[in-house]
């Protein structure tokens, strides 16, 4: 599964667990308008670390948290090990 698909799959999973409905996802959608609130996104980041072995947001102090879904996916693609590309 590509990184992007893994992320979308996990977003749907977390949304289901938290009783939320996801908005139609596209790259320009603001992450906080996706239907996940900040707790949901925090859980998503922890789950993705479990799946992808990387957490691009807590690894570095200066990291800007992504505003859009596209930025979010890109952060993982940039941080992922070559095997995941």
């Amino acid at each position: 599964m590509s990184i992007k698909l893994t992320i979308i799959d996990q977003m749907q999973q977390v949304a289901r667990e938290h009783g939320k409905t996801l908005a139609p996802l596209d790259d320009d959608l603001a992450l906080l308008d996706s239907g996940l609130d900040s707790l949901g996104i925090a859980v998503l980041v922890a789950r993705l670390e479990d799946r992808l072995g990387v957490d691009p947001f807590t690894a570095s102090e200066e990291m800007q948290f992504p505003v859009t879904v596209g930025d979010f996916v890109k952060a993982y693609e940039n941080a992922a090990a070559p095997a995941h590309r």
Partner: peptide, 12 residues
């Protein structure tokens, strides 16, 4: 707790 950029911490 685990550090989280959005909520300060998260439970693991």
């Amino acid at each position: 707790p685990k550090r989280s950029p959005l909520t300060g911490s998260i439970v693991i």
